[in-house]
Every structure is written in structure tokens, then in C-alpha cells.
């Protein structure tokens, strides 16, 4: 799978979906409409990038959803009432992510299980912080999330910024290259003198950082939080990375693709409500769209490579 193809398909599926939305609801083709369509995509995009950092080193993070919920709870309580303590908690949670990455590598634990365990831990902490929905968003994040830049809505600007910055970090910088190499061949990285433990801890810390950003942004949009606010982000983020052309193994990821994948998933929700589909079928249709996009991707990839060495992975 070459780099050009990897980004082509996510772009195409987003364009098709966007065209369908505009066709069904021409009024969406405006500053306000776009903002409405993509608003909730910003935290999803950030969570997808977080997931991508983990998938980059061949692991998978089942705790993204509860972690973002936990961060949202911290943001709506401590970060609002006692900003210093709030920042300290968030920094500590990023360190916790790094520690988990190191633990997984040192003890050679299955990431899927450790992050599953962590999802209980973050969920428990979130429940302790906010047993019932509530809290309030700090004013500054509220301001950032509702700012109205000229010509292009904030949500679109934010997504382009996220995609651009993570692209520079992961695809263009030396750090990014060595992090991706851990996913590609950890043994080779270790032999050439790097500490894989430190690199994995770094990748996990980046995931923690983007998870924190996702939670803070989410509260900026919703103005309050509850312990279950972002549970579906776990599955959305995995789907977003895959839709964006990322793969489960080999360090083959694409930050721009991941952001586009997240946008596609967010847009699929809006598309279905424009279709006036019965709410009963909304979740199902979201699944169907996911399957459809992946089916199209199959047609593309059949053209690009004739033989696949193994299905195992």
C-alpha cells in the first residue's frame, strides 16, 4: 500500500459523503452549516489521533473512551474550580499513560488487556469525580471552541491544524520516523541502540496528550461533563484510524487520514439525520456506511497489490 493511495481513499469517501449531505440539505453548504456538521468532530479527531499513536507501535487502546470521559470530568470540575490542581491531574494522567506503555513493553503484556483494565480504572476515577452529570466548562476553553474565524468555521480550522501538526510530528520529524519504526520492526530499532521502552512510553504519552486535548475540547463544546460522556470514542477512534488508511500492525499510519476518518464518521451521523431515518436504524446505518467505505477500499487495494502474504494481522 503506497502513501499516495493511503490518503486518496479517505479523502474520496469524505468528499462523497459531504456531497451527499449538501445534496440532501443545500443549506448545510454555509459557514454555519459546516460548523454544525463538524463541531463534534474536533474531539473525535483528537481521540482518533490518540488511538493512532498507540496503533503506530502495534498496540491497541481500549481505554480511549473512558480516558476522554475522565479528562472531561477533570476539566469540568478541577480545571474550572482550581486550574493548578486540574493541570497537575492532567499531567499526571499523561505520565500514567507513559508508565502503562513502559509496563506493557517491559513485561511484554498484551496491550489490549492492560488498556482494558485501565478503562475500568479511568471509568472509576470519572465516577468518583462526577457521580452525576454536571460541572462547568472553564471560560477559556469555551471561548476557544466557539471562536468564529473569518470564512472557515472553527471546527474545520481546528481539524486542519490537528492534521497538519500531527503530520509534521509523525511523518516528517525524526522522532516520528523512529516511533513508526517501533511498529515496523521493534527489534531492529533496539539493535540500533534505541530504548524501545522509552519510545513506547513516548508513544503512549503522546496518546495521553491527545486524549487530554480531546476531553478538554469536548467539555468546551458540551459545557458540562459526565462519567460516560465519551464511551463510544473507543470504537469510533479505532474505526477512524482504519477508515483513514491506518493498519493494525507495522507502524503504517496516516495522521491526515485519521483526522479525515474521524470527520467521515462524524459526518455519517449528520448525514443520517438529514435522511430523516428512523432513530431505530441510525446506529445500523452508521455500521452500513462503515462497511461500504471499507468495501470500496477493497476494490482500490485489489488494483494496487495483487498478492497478500498473510491474512493474519
Amino acid at each position: 500500500m503506497n502513501g499516495k493511495y493511503r490518503i486518496l481513499l479517505p479523502v474520496l469517501s469524505l468528499t462523497v459523503l459531504l456531497a451527499a449531505v449538501f445534496y440532501l440539505q443545500p443549506r448545510a453548504m454555509s459557514y454555519f452549516g459546516l460548523n454544525l456538521l463538524f463541531n463534534l468532530a474536533v474531539p473525535i479527531a483528537l481521540a482518533t489521533i490518540a488511538q493512532m499513536m498507540i496503533m503506530m507501535v502495534n498496540d491497541i487502546d481500549l481505554s480511549v473512551g473512558t480516558f476522554v470521559s475522565f479528562v472531561a470530568c477533570v476539566t469540568a470540575t478541577f480545571l474550572n474550580d482550581a486550574p493548578l490542581i486540574g493541570v497537575a491531574i492532567l499531567l499526571a494522567s499523561i505520565l500514567a499513560y507513559a508508565a502503562i506503555g513502559a509496563l506493557i513493553h517491559i513485561r511484554q503484556l498484551p496491550a489490549i488487556v492492560v488498556t482494558l483494565g485501565m478503562s475500568f480504572v479511568w471509568g472509576g476515577l470519572a465516577v468518583l469525580l462526577l457521580p452525576s452529570p454536571g460541572g462547568a466548562a472553564p471560560d477559556w476553553i469555551r471561548t476557544i471552541m466557539t471562536v468564529k474565524p473569518p470564512f472557515v468555521p472553527m471546527a474545520v480550522v481546528a481539524c486542519i491544524l490537528i492534521a497538519g501538526l500531527t503530520h509534521l510530528l509523525i511523518m516528517r520529524s525524526a522522532t516520528g520516523a523512529i516511533l513508526r519504526a517501533v511498529g515496523g520492526n521493534a527489534q531492529a530499532v533496539a539493535r540500533s541502540g534505541w530504548s524501545v521502552t522509552k519510545l513506547k512510553a513516548g508513544a503512549y504519552a503522546l496518546a495521553g496528550l491527545f486524549g487530554v486535548l480531546a476531553g478538554v475540547c469536548l467539555v468546551g463544546l458540551t459545557t458540562s461533563a459526565d462519567a460516560n460522556i465519551a464511551l463510544r470514542y473507543t470504537l469510533l477512534s479505532i474505526a477512524g484510524v482504519i477508515l483513514g488508511g491506518g493498519e493494525f500492525t507495522g507502524g503504517r499510519v496516516s495522521p491526515v487520514g485519521a483526522v479525515i476518518g474521524a470527520l467521515t464518521l462524524a459526518l455519517a451521523g449528520s448525514f443520517l439525520s438529514f435522511m430523516r431515518l428512523s432513530p431505530d436504524w441510525q446506529i445500523g446505518a452508521q455500521g452500513a456506511i462503515l462497511i461500504l467505505v471499507l468495501a470500496v477500499r477493497l476494490i482500490f487495494s485489489r488494483r494496487n497489490r495483487k498478492w497478500r502474504t498473510s491474512d493474519n494481522g
Binding site: 503484556l109 483494565g117 475500568f120 480504572v121 472509576g124
Partner: peptide, 21 residues
């Protein structure tokens, strides 16, 4: 309470996996 219960459940899962590996 529910919160502590969840945290302990998670911690125990991780501890067992770490011990058994």
C-alpha cells in the same frame, strides 16, 4: 462505591496479567 469498585477491578485485571505473564 461504584467508582472504587471499577478502579479496583481494573487494577486487579492488570495485576493478574502482569503476574501471570
Amino acid at each position: 462505591g461504584a467508582g472504587v469498585r471499577l478502579i479496583m477491578t481494573g487494577a486487579i485485571i492488570i495485576a493478574i496479567v502482569a503476574a501471570a505473564s
